[in-house]
């Protein structure tokens, strides 16, 4: 019974979903602040419940399947995307050095699940016949080539230097990999994460002013709600991964007796600072073109991450 509650409430599903929605709120609020606006205001204190309200609103909308779309894919993709990304998030240590799930080599599992999610983005964009959606899906697939390898390499470098592919082992060492050489890795990770999350300057698959909202354009009702929630979870996953790999995860200075209370607090604090950086990047740039992004990825990001990986391996030996 205790175990079931642990999986469901804290630090389980409810906690993860709340955190994901909180991060969406924080991102919106921060970007609004950067743009001299106010952001969400009315639902709940300071608009904290706005993501939840959006979610519920989308659930109440009419469910439309565009004529000529692949009905099975169209229905399955949102559900699978959400499930896959939630599974990945549950490997992230959030309230203690151990995640909800933990196994040997779970960093690889998380990265694999992330790639599966991105492929699901492609299929969900390709299933309706809309041209905007098709173009968005093609762009998403093309983007995947540009940022997925750098993201993996910068993550694996940390695992190499920590000597373990298990997230809880990396975190338990209590080291902050952001200093020195690994700062490059941190930057590569952030850039790749920004691209992975379809956020400015890399929101090319969604590109509102060009292809309306790209691969998402035909989705409505619970499908859109799930896809949006999946995107929030992806945000949580990537910021959580950045915190765990480079900022020491939930570990921080605390007496052993207070650890169950202080560690979630440290984690959220670090999460907020990473979100601040990502939001600042989102607020400071225009959107790149797809060819420009791919050339950025292959000319700078990939060589840089390769050099970083080789340097860490040399450093370890």
């Amino acid at each position: 019974m205790m175990n079931f509650l642990r999986m469901l409430l804290y630090p389980g599903m409810v906690y993860i979903l709340t955190l994901a929605m909180f991060l969406e709120w924080l991102d919106r609020k921060l970007v609004a602040k950067f743009q001299n606006r106010v952001g969400p205001m009315y639902v709940g204190p300071l608009g904290l419940l706005q993501p939840l309200a959006d979610f519920l609103k989308l659930l109440s909308k009419e469910s439309i399947i565009p004529a000529g779309s692949d009905r099975i894919l169209f229905n399955i993709c949102p559900i699978t995307a959400f499930v896959v990304i939630t599974l990945a998030v549950s490997f992230i240590p959030m309230v203690s050095v151990r995640g909800l799930l933990s196994t040997e080599g779970d960093l690889i599992v998380v990265l694999a699940l992330l790639t599966i999610y991105l492929l699901l983005v492609y299929t969900s964009g390709a299933s309706p016949p809309s041209r905007y959606s098709q173009i968005g899906a093609a762009r998403a697939a093309l983007m995947l080539l540009g940022f997925d390898l750098p993201l993996m390499m910068s993550s694996i470098s940390v695992a190499v230097i920590a000597g373990s592919f298990r997230l809880s082992d990396i975190v338990a060492q209590g080291r902050y990999y952001i200093v020195g050489l690994h700062f490059i890795g941190f930057l590569i990770f952030l850039v790749a994460a920004q691209a992975e999350l379809d956020r400015l300057p890399f929101d090319i698959p969604e590109a509102e002013s060009e292809i309306v909202s790209g691969w998402l354009v035909e989705y409505s009702s619970w499908r859109l709600a799930l896809l949006r929630l999946a995107k929030n979870m992806e945000f949580l996953l990537l910021t959580g991964l950045a915190v765990n790999l480079y900022l020491g995860g939930p570990v921080g200075p605390s007496p052993p007796s207070l650890e169950p209370f202080l560690q979630p607090f440290y984690f959220i604090l670090k999460l907020v600072s990473v979100t601040f950086l990502l939001s600042l990047v989102r607020a400071s740039f225009a959107r790149l073109r797809i060819d420009q992004f791919v050339s950025l990825g292959w000319h700078y990001l990939l060589p840089l991450s390769l050099i970083y990986l080789v340097m860490t391996i040399v450093l370890v030996n």
Binding site: K33, N36, L280, A283, S284, F285
Partner: peptide
């Protein structure tokens, strides 16, 4: 813009 954003 980043400086401007932080000022904002």
């Amino acid at each position: 813009t980043s400086f401007e954003a932080i000022k904002n």
